[in-house]
């Protein structure tokens, strides 16, 4: 971040010799409004036709409620898993040197670059009962594809890069001298890790978790191939929007979309709060 300089009183912007402020900000706001804000406003307008009570009715309809529960519940679990393993991956990739480290580092971004539909058909054919992994899982009595487990797998896949990449830079910024000091003062390695190393990482882990969660809740392409899409069991909220559209129920689709949009806002807000807190507590983002 640029060093925050004291704000002048009641001035929209601080004086600067750099030109182009009006032009660039004007263009930014225009494009932002046309591409993002107006279409989103159209959604809110359409949904507001229902009123708060109308949206509430849609949200509490058992099938919608259950789809929202599946989306949020499974995404929560998937984000937790992605964060846990993602932190280990981040730690291993930054702290240890081993053969193939750079390749593995590059692989982490695969879900980012791989189209979701491709991921979907690949995961479905792997985890189906006659697939490579699904067959093994079936032997121990786990049905992966076409159950919430399948949704979970797809969401972990989608969320993993976020969990790794938000934590990684912070691990590399940890001052090893602090760890040495802790060790010299008699702390065990475990003690150093839990009391000295991990606490400053918490905000980054939380941010990564929130991003993975947000992506998981909204994810569609990779999940529909593997989920089974059974109402009340493995039907996700984005799919229900598509289904509502196929039923010509625009109001219902908008209501679910608005609820999901509200959640997106909340998550973004939460990330900003985490980062503000982290700036105060640890002095960095």
């Amino acid at each position: 971040m640029a060093t925050p300089s004291p704000r002048p009183k009641r001035r929209f912007r601080q004086p600067s010799v750099i030109p182009g402020f009006g032009l660039t900000l004007g263009y930014t706001l225009t494009v932002l409004s046309l591409v993002v804000l107006l279409p989103l406003a159209a959604l809110v307008v359409r949904a507001s036709g229902l009123g708060i009570s109308g949206i509430w009715d849609v949200a509490t309809d058992p099938r919608v409620a259950s789809a929202l529960r599946v989306s949020f519940g499974v995404s929560l679990l998937a984000a937790l898993t992605a964060s846990f393993f993602g932190s280990i991956v981040a730690w291993v990739l930054t702290r240890y040197d081993f053969p193939g480290r750079r390749i593995i580092d590059a692989v982490v971004d695969l879900p980012f670059a791989l189209p979701t539909a491709v991921a979907g058909i690949a995961l479905a054919s792997l985890y189906a009962p006659n697939g490579l992994v699904g067959e093994q899982l079936a032997k121990v009595g786990i049905e992966a594809a076409y159950t919430p487990v399948g949704i979970f797998i797809a969401m972990v896949f989608i969320g993993l890069p976020f969990a790794v990449r938000t934590v990684q830079p912070l691990i590399s910024e940890i001052d090893k001298e602090v760890e040495e000091a802790s060790a010299i003062l008699g702390s065990t390695r475990l003690g150093t890790l839990t009391k000295v190393v991990l606490p400053p990482l918490i905000p980054a882990v939380l941010t990564g978790f929130a991003l993975a969660f947000a992506r998981g809740v909204g994810e569609y392409g990779s999940i529909i191939f593997i989920a089974g899409n059974l109402p009340y069991v493995s039907e996700i909220a984005p799919l229900l929007i598509v289904i509502k559209l196929s039923e010509f129920d625009y109001a219902g689709a908008c209501a679910i979309a608005t609820i999901m949009l509200a959640i997106s806002f909340t998550v973004l807000l939460a990330i900003n709060l985490i980062q503000a807190w982290s700036r105060r507590r640890f002095g960095y983002v």
Binding site: A124, A128, P129, N130, A145, Y146, I224, G228, N229, L230, P231, E235, L239, V242, I243, S246
Partner: peptide, 21 residues
Amino acid sequence: QVPVLDTGARGSTVTFAQRGL
């Protein structure tokens, strides 16, 4: 008794024939 409810007839056929459910 329906374990998978696909969105289209084609999805169901793939589930039954290709995925073996």
